[in-house]
């Protein structure tokens, strides 16, 4: 093995072990900071809130860096062009499933939803299949997935990913069945889409893929860390000050109206996944039902006002309303099913 490669391998190993050591010692460190350094009483509300923040904030940020780096590397294998090539001309059902799956790994930013939408529907990707992609891309969010895994374990993470994929598949399929092409702005289908331009799918060496990971960390972590800290601060306040089981009466299984309410509140709200999950964690801890919380989280992350405003450029209002309605209904069903089953 050549020396520079050996050295970067050693550096990477060193980095990973350092990360692991820091990660493992966060819990005692957080307690030490809250109860020893600041001298707060372990049983006090402020003490509980501060200890929560001091532990969760660095933990979530550390997880975030690793996840975003990994996802950046994975995404370097996927481009919208390749995804489109897979989806173009697909039969509906199969196409919906594939689109939902590819929506998870294909690089997507709601700021380029419009060119992506036009690029898909004008080159033979059915409308419903395009919607499956557009629903799953923000909803099955890799940050959410890994934070859920880190905070609640694999079951909740798998539930979230599975139900998100099902909603994206079924909602896209329904939109396809409804034959709503006439509600797409007419100029969209008249657009002469250029051949795939490349520039995002040049063959890459592993070094370049790691560079993608680093770019993603710089960009995403640099952008979302205030959301994360704000989310953890709210979570910490709930953790320390909201009485145990307080949420059980409002967001518990018994309160049937809590699921639609959670969706109604969640849809216009917009937050990064990384910011909403610490809040979710604190709500669950205080007795909120998993289905209700999951519904809330999905409607915050999956349906956002900014994205629907962006999509308004290419979709007429009835289609936007159908899209939001179908997805919200799917989230509602998921919320109820989980509250009944679990």
């Amino acid at each position: 093995m050549p020396v520079p490669r050996l050295r970067s391998l050693l550096l990477a190993l060193l980095g990973v072990s350092a990360w692991w050591l820091v990660y493992r010692s966060l819990e005692p460190l957080g307690r030490w900071l809250a109860f020893r350094l600041l001298g707060l009483a372990p049983g006090s509300r402020l003490g509980a809130a501060v200890a929560f923040f001091a532990y969760e904030a660095p933990k979530v940020l550390l997880l975030l860096v690793v996840v975003v780096f990994g996802v950046g590397v994975v995404r370097s294998f996927f481009t919208p062009e390749r995804t489109r090539a897979v989806l173009a001309g697909r039969r509906e059902s199969v196409g919906n499933v594939l689109a939902a799956l590819l929506g998870v790994v294909t690089p997507f930013c709601s700021c380029s939803a419009v060119p992506l939408f036009i690029g898909f529907v004008t080159t033979g990707v059915p409308l419903g299949v395009t919607f499956s992609f557009l629903i799953s891309a923000p909803m099955v969010n890799e940050i959410a997935l890994v934070l859920l895994f880190g905070l609640f374990g694999w079951k909740v993470a798998a539930l979230y990913a599975g139900t998100g994929l099902i909603i994206a598949t079924v909602a896209g399929w329904i939109i396809g069945r409804l034959k709503l092409e006439r509600w797409v702005e007419p100029w969209v289908y008249a657009t002469a889409t250029g051949p795939a331009a490349g520039g995002s799918d040049a063959p890459l060496a592993w070094g370049d893929r790691f560079e993608f990971g680093r770019e993603a960390v710089k960009d995403i972590v640099g952008r979302v860390w205030p959301f994360v800290l704000a989310g953890i601060a709210v979570g910490a306040a709930i953790h320390g000050y909201v009485p145990q089981d307080f949420m059980a009466s409002i967001m518990g299984k018994g309160a049937w109206w809590s699921v639609p309410l959670a969706v109604l509140i969640g849809v216009p709200m917009y937050s990064n996944a990384a910011g909403i999950i610490p809040i979710v964690q604190a709500l669950l801890e205080k007795g909120a039902a998993l289905g209700t919380v999951l519904a809330f989280m999905m409607s915050v992350i999956g349906l956002s006002l900014p994205e629907t405003i962006i999509l308004r450029k290419v979709l007429t209002l009835p289609l936007i309303a159908t899209f939001v309605g179908v997805v919200a209904a799917g989230i509602l069903v998921v919320g109820y099913v989980f509250n009944i089953v679990l």
Partner: peptide
């Protein structure tokens, strides 16, 4: 967006 798509671009 039309000018963007005409250039074959889907990611901005």
């Amino acid at each position: 967006p039309v000018a963007i798509v005409r250039r074959g671009v889907m990611q901005t």
